[in-house]
């Protein structure tokens, strides 16, 4: 893996990430709410021919270093997400993945959508895209792995 970073810690960062043999030790739990979850799956599930996933998946949110919130957060689901986070013993990093999680995205004017996950929880990293490419999630996890300050 070649990683060439200009400013490795606080985002935004520019660099190249090669997917072929990236092994991130960041345990990731995907709160998959909508279509962005499919891109997260594409990013973290084992590549064709590879035995291990690119980033290890936590079995439950309690064991996760990073929570990836991918997809649209609706007002009806918001209390459930809040309850999920309140039940965690620590505070994992929260990556807001995709336009809907960043700001409400294409549904910013909807009667039923919460305009961004940060209305509910503090977000450590925002990934733009609709949906972001799987490479964007790997890059975001790399930023966390390098020590993203809270």
């Amino acid at each position: 893996m070649t990683v060439d970073l200009e400013s490795p810690t606080v985002g935004p960062y520019r660099g190249t990430v090669s997917l072929d043999d990236v092994r991130l030790r960041v345990w990731t739990y995907d709160v998959g709410l909508a279509c962005c979850a499919v891109e997260v799956m594409a990013a973290v599930l084992p590549r064709l021919g590879a035995a291990q996933p690119v980033a290890p998946l936590a079995a439950s949110p309690r064991e996760a270093d990073v929570l990836v919130v991918s997809g649209t957060l609706t007002d009806v689901f918001a209390p459930i997400l809040r309850r999920l986070l309140d039940q965690l013993p620590g505070r994992p990093y929260v990556i807001s993945f995709g336009a809907c999680a960043d700001s409400g995205g294409p549904y910013w004017d909807s009667y039923s959508v919460t305009k961004g996950v940060d209305q509910l929880v503090p977000v450590d990293l925002y990934v733009p895209g609709c949906p972001p490419r799987p490479q964007a999630l790997i890059a975001a996890l790399q930023v966390v792995a390098d020590g993203l300050p809270r």
Partner: peptide, 13 residues
């Protein structure tokens, strides 16, 4: 309100 009626105004806009 009834959201899918045409007279329903989206407050965010």
């Amino acid at each position: 309100g009834h959201p899918l009626r045409k007279g329903f105004v989206l407050a965010a806009r």
